[in-house]
Design a protein around this nucleic acid. Structure first.
Length: 272
DNA sequence: CTGAGCACCTGAGGGC
DNA sequence: TGCCCTCAGGTGCTCA
């Protein structure tokens, strides 16, 4: 799935496609459910509305219209794509027909994605958004904040970084990558990460997410932008999916293990 | 409260 | 070539 950088890349592309504030002329559902049933009737209430903006909160895309908000999550394999005329895509589930002539497809083979409405006036109160931690690229996400949060936890630091209640947007790739850059072993107990290490880790998280956005995201497997352009950040992965490959710093072979059900990669020498 | 395990679903890739 | 197995960017449930 798309982690924060990939979602942000999609957001920017949608923003460009929504230039001129097109109307939602038709919303076509090719199936009734993704991971959960879609609230089709509520979504249809947005018909005819102009699209005003598209924002991102955590890994959610928030499309703001005159008549309300449309929220989407890309799950593991979700994408918003400009549908080309006549194509008959197996995994297209919803089409947004816009008044500028574009047809946007929500395409998601595994159907772990989400499509719902949200209240524009109180987005933070919507059920999907009300328990989220701070945005990692904003100033409130600091070393002292992370250190205090980690102090409260006994488990390993890597799953903690992926907990969206602690901080949003970091998924399985960027958790491994940020810990490598900060020289922290993923297995390190959260409450034993020093303030100094937490400061370094926050700096690395901000840097890696920003770099990934600039590179158009990581295109492992099938992530692509709305108009088929792949990102290139996966070329800069230093540990993720590199089991048995020499560490770029010290040459030791990268190791892999499973933590909280997710593959985890690290250098046994550089990270302690 | 926390953390672990698993379920949700399809497709890609490796081994034989 | 084909079959079978494992694994995949996330989240949210149950259970201890």
């Amino acid at each position: 799935m798309p982690e924060l950088p990939e979602v942000e890349v999609v957001r920017k592309e949608l923003e460009a496609l929504f230039e001129g504030q097109p109307r939602l002329e038709k919303i076509e559902f090719l199936r009734k459910e993704l991971r959960d049933p879609m609230p089709i009737a509520k979504i249809q209430l947005l018909l005819g509305a102009r699209i005003l903006a598209v924002r991102r909160r955590a890994k959610y895309l928030l499309i703001e219209t005159e008549k309300g908000g449309l929220l989407s999550h890309l799950g593991m394999t979700g994408t918003w794509r400009v549908a080309v005329g006549g194509d008959d895509r197996l995994h297209d589930h919803v089409y947004l027909h816009l008044s500028n002539g574009l047809r946007l497809a929500f395409r998601d083979p595994r159907r772990f994605g989400i499509l719902e409405v949200f209240d524009l006036r109180f987005p933070e109160k919507s059920p999907r958004l009300c328990n989220l931690g701070p945005e990692p690229l904003e100033e409130i996400f600091t070393g002292i904040y992370l250190w205090r949060q980690l102090k409260l936890r006994k488990g390993p630091v890597k799953p903690a970084l992926m907990d969206q209640k602690l901080v949003v947007g970091i998924g399985n790739i960027y958790a491994s990558e940020a810990l490598f850059r900060a020289k922290i072993r993923p297995q390190r107990k959260s409450n034993r990460v020093s303030l100094e290490s937490a400061e370094i880790l926050v700096g690395q998280i901000k840097q890696i997410l920003a770099e990934a956005i600039l590179s158009g995201g990581s295109s492992i497997s099938d992530f692509k932008g709305a108009q088929d352009n792949p990102g290139s950040f996966h070329l800069l992965h230093q540990v993720y999916d590199r089991k048995g490959v020499p560490c770029v710093i010290c040459g030791t072979l990268i190791r892999q293990s499973v933590m909280a059900g997710r593959s985890t990669f690290w250098c046994p020498v550089c990270q302690s």
